[in-house]
Design a binder for these strands. Structure first.
Lengths: 209, 209
DNA sequence: ATGGGACGGATTGTGTAACAATCCTCGGGT
DNA sequence: ACCCGAGGATTGTTACACAATCCGTCCCAT
């Protein structure tokens, strides 16, 4: 499944994004330009452009003259990332509710897929992907392209974070949890999402070295 | 006041950002790589890197093989930008309130500066800058670097938008309005911000071609 | 006149090679 | 043990070249 793209930079960025989000690279690990240029058979300029775009997504961090590395997250950064997610998802839920788009939306379907992923005991990485899709679906229900795009990159960051956090949400019924969450949002308003994310934040922080 | 910076790309990006936010360039106007390279005496690669970073901030839009132009905003984009602002600022206000940081914060000082800018009948662009600083101060009160950074780039976008919108918030007492807003937030909660921004959205959209 | 194409200049995308600037490591000297 | 300098490794930047794409224009056939 080669990534077709209009430009080499875009294609390389996509390939590197996939690689980073596959977990094959440890947080803090440097990405060397020459090596990547040789491996993907592109010029260093192309590599640099792709790396810069991934750094803009915060999957990588770049320091002048010191190269780019896979992002690592300390506790403060995790908290602030979750605060951002909360901001966007709550607002999105509110907009979706106002437009009456939450009930009949894709969210239920996403939750069903999450349930199936859990039932067939998939790779926890697949379960997590389905979990992320549920939250993305909630945001998408707001009908704002901008909110969706912004939230998607946050989910990417979160995925990277989870990749390198041992045993996070195992031994739970995520699907049922989110069905409840959805009902609460419909009944009590978007604030239900705040506590949902806050819970995941404390769990996330607990299960870290 | 030359911009000193560790790298040429960073310096050029800063210079171009200032230029875009000065209003000297019309929305939709293309930025040609050769011209910029010649004018700033840097290579085209450096120009491209700087343009890419401004595009990531959404001050410019880039299309493959078609160049980058100064961003223009249609009604939908304005709405969605304001939705994002609402999300961040409401969440920030909530966090600031929880931490008790809103009352004794820098926000009052920012409002004072806004009052002074209005009193001495400054350039409306200066007034708007002071106005933006008030909202930034509210977000900063949350104490989240990430929220502040993200909000700052949104304010940049908004500044560009306002630059090319005639006569927006003139003939009003913005400072007093925001003192009231602050009291409402403290008394009634962060939701007061939502209506504040919503109001500005409708005004903004009304005063556009 | 009018709706395609075909042509050609302008602009962007990418590569190669080189060098400057900075970082980093590893010794040697005190 | 600590400072420091030398040298290699890596990034930042440049110049030049060429391919890929876009865009306006002109010509032609209907």
């Amino acid at each position: 499944m080669t990534v077709r793209s209009s430009t080499a930079v875009h294609a390389l960025a996509a390939a590197l994004r996939e690689e980073v989000l596959s977990g094959r690279l440890a947080p803090g690990q440097p990405l060397r330009e020459e090596r990547l240029a040789a491996r993907f058979e592109v010029s260093r300029h192309t590599v640099r452009a792709a790396l810069a775009s991934l750094a803009a997504e915060r999957l990588l961090v770049a320091e002048p003259y010191r190269g780019v590395r896979v992002s690592d997250f300390d506790e403060v950064q995790v908290r602030e990332l979750q605060q951002l997610r909360t901001a966007l998802e709550c607002e999105a839920a509110r907009l979706a509710l106002d437009a009456g788009g939450l009930p009949s939306s894709e969210v239920d379907r996403a939750i069903d897929r999450l349930a199936e992923a859990e039932r067939r005991g998939s790779d926890w990485i697949d379960v997590e992907r389905a979990h992320a899709a549920v939250h993305q679906a909630i945001v998408d229900a707001a009908g704002s392209r901008r909110l969706s795009d912004t939230y998607r990159t946050l989910e990417g960051e979160l995925a990277l974070l989870l990749l390198h956090t041992r045993t996070v949400f195992s031994s739970r019924d995520l699907a049922e949890e989110h069905r409840v969450l959805l009902r609460e949002v419909e009944a009590l308003g978007p604030e239900a999402i705040r506590s949902h994310i806050a819970e995941s934040t404390t769990e996330l922080l607990r299960s870290r070295a």
